[in-house]
């Protein structure tokens, strides 16, 4: 499902202008990363997608719905949301009930709820703990649980606010697999992250925000190559891109595989010269 933002501005009641004239179209099935320094307006932007915040100006369309005409609960059928702070969303007695809460609200049958819970918990690797209490888990695991709860809603669009925070290699691996799976299933995925290496490896497109405005937008390779623009937005490119730049190698390698290939070619060319 696609998503459109037209001429949107947002001001918090305290007076902070957090979004300033945003135009944006996210086609169906895209995996988009939103980047930008702290306080750039990323979280504020995505909260418009499920109506938690309403634009002070402009329109947000979710598929063919004008978001202004729907409640957040209705929008939840189309947009699943992982909060930056997982503790904002957890409240049930067990992991299984927690994950089942969303699907139940959306009217899924008991059998269906069960199936989705099992699958979602398995995906994040918490299936052994289905009957444990959410607050028995340490914070990084609670984030994974919240992710499972979001996935179980089976929405065509998913918004993930900082999914890899505090995760070790195992957690990042799990999230990476989940993203790949969901992407293959044709979901529209929007993730906010400061984890540049992770974004470079997974995102198709990137959007860099600065002071409530869109600073750059484009394919991942294109955006990661725009050193000057990134610098202005105080966003550092990922390790491999920085290494390629330091070596004065052409191209913007996004994965280790890319880097290895490009490096070999570059060496060969250098030698033949």
């Amino acid at each position: 499902m696609n998503l459109r933002v037209e001429g949107v501005s947002f001001r918090y009641p305290s007076g902070v202008l957090a979004l300033d004239g945003i135009d944006l179209a996210i086609p169906s099935g895209q995996l988009l990363a939103i980047l930008g320094e702290n306080g750039a307006g990323k979280t504020t932007l995505v909260k418009l997608f499920n109506g938690l915040l309403r634009p002070s100006q402009g329109k947000v369309y979710i598929g063919d719905w004008d978001s202004a005409e729907h409640t957040t609960a209705a929008l939840a059928r189309r947009v699943g949301f992982l909060f930056q702070n997982p503790d904002d969303q957890l409240f049930e007695r067990t992991l299984a009930r927690e994950v089942g809460y969303g699907p139940r609200n959306l009217g899924a049958s008991e059998a269906e709820v069960k199936r989705r819970v099992a699958r979602a918990l398995k995906l994040v690797g918490l299936h052994d703990m289905a009957e444990a209490h959410p607050y028995d888990l340490p914070q990084p695991q609670r984030k994974l649980l919240a992710l499972a709860a979001t996935i179980a809603m089976d929405t065509p669009i998913l918004v993930l606010d900082e999914p890899t925070i505090g995760q070790d290699e195992v957690g990042r691996g799990a999230i990476s697999r989940i993203l790949t799976d969901l992407h293959r299933m044709g979901r529209t995925l929007i993730m906010i992250s400061h984890d540049m290496d992770f974004c470079a490896e997974h995102a198709q497109r990137m959007l860099v925000m600065l002071n409530g405005k869109i600073h750059v937008e484009g394919t991942t390779e294109d955006v990661m190559g725009q050193t000057k623009k990134l610098d202005e937005a105080e966003v550092a490119p990922p390790q491999l891109v920085r290494l390629a730049q330091a070596l004065k190698m052409p191209g913007t390698p996004l994965t280790v595989d890319d880097f290895v290939d490009e490096y070999k070619q570059w060496r060969k060319k250098k030698k033949s010269k």
């Binding site: 909060f83 904002d88 969303q89 809460y101 969303g102």
Partner: peptide, 14 residues
């Protein structure tokens, strides 16, 4: 308010 937001985001009709 924060929690209410989260529940709505998970389909709770208010």
């Amino acid at each position: 308010q924060v929690i209410m937001d989260a529940q709505q985001a998970r389909g709770l009709e208010l």
